[in-house]
Amino acid sequence: MKKLSLDYKQLPLIATMSLFIVMFAIGSMRYTGFLSTQVFLNLFVDNAFLIILAVGMTFVIISGGIDLSVGSVIALTSMVAASLTMNAGLSPWIVIPISLSVGTIIGLGQGYLIHYYNLQPFIVTLAGMFLARGLSYLISVESIAISSPFFDYMAGTRIPLGGGNFISISVVIALIVVLFAVYVSLFTKFGRNVYALGGSEQSALLMGLPVARTKILIYTFSGFCASLAGLVFTFYMLSGYALHANGMELDTIAAVVIGGTLLTGGAGYVAGSVVGVLITGIIQTMIVFEGTLSAWWTKIAIGVLLFFFIVLQRVIVLRTKPK
C-alpha cells in the first residue's frame, strides 16, 4: 500500500519516459532513416532554447507558480542582442551580459510583485509578457539580421561526436544548464525549498524557510533562463525580431507538464522536463517524416498529450489525498 502511493507520484515521469521510447520506436519502424543518432541529436539541436526555457519553467511550476513571460523575453533578448551588435556595434563581451540581464531583471521584478503584493503569478507574468513584447517592438518593428563573427561562430560551429554526427554549441549550453539545474534542485537548500514551497507555502513559512527569497529567486532564475534561451534562439535564427518565439510560453508549459511536473506544484523533475521537450520535438520530427501530415497536427497532438497528463495528475492528486 505504502509502496503504491509512492509509485503514483512517479507515474507521470514513468509515463513520460515510456512515451518517448515508444514514440521513438514507432518512428523508427515507420520511417526509414528515423533510427539514426543524428535524428536523435537534432532533437537537441533544434530545441536547445526550449530545453533552457523548460528548465527555468520547471522550478516555477514546482513552486506552484507559472511564468507566461518567457516567450516574449526571448524576443526582447534577441532584439537587445541584435540591436546592440548591429546598430551600436558593441563587442559580444558587452552584448552578452547585457542581454542576459534583460530577462533576469524582468524575472526579479515579477518575483517581487508576486511575493510582496500577493498578486497571482499568472497575471503578473502576463503583464511581463506584454511588457517584454512591447519593448521589443519599441526597439524595432523590423527584424534585425545579425552578421558578426561571434554570432556566426556560435551558430555555425558543429561539434563532431564521431560517425559524422554532431551537436551545436547551443546544445552544450543547454546541457550545462540542465546539469546545473539538476544539481541545484537535488543538492542545494534553494532547490529543496522550491519543492517545499510547492508542497505547501503555509508549511514552508511555519517551518521557517526563507519563502520570500526563494520565491523571488525562482522567478529571477526563470527570467535568466529565458534570456539565455533568447541568446541561444538568436544563435539559431541569427536575427532579432519582436515576433520571435510567439506563444512559446505555451510550448514550454506543455513540455514541463508532459515531462511529469505537477501543474499544482510540489513534484517534478528537471530531467523530466527535458524529456518533455524531446517529446514535443519528436512529434514535430515524425510529422516531418510523415510528409503528408501538416504542422498543425503538432498543436493538436500536444493538446491531447496535455489533456492526458493533466487528467493523470488530477487522478494522482485525488488518490494521494489522505481523505
Binding site: I123, L126, A127, L131, R133, G134, Y137, L138, V141, A242
Partner: peptide, 11 residues
C-alpha cells in the same frame, strides 16, 4: 508598438 507596453503597465 507602445500599445503593449501601455497595456502591461495598466494591468
Amino acid at each position: 508598438e507602445t500599445n503593449m507596453v501601455v497595456k502591461a503597465i495598466v494591468v
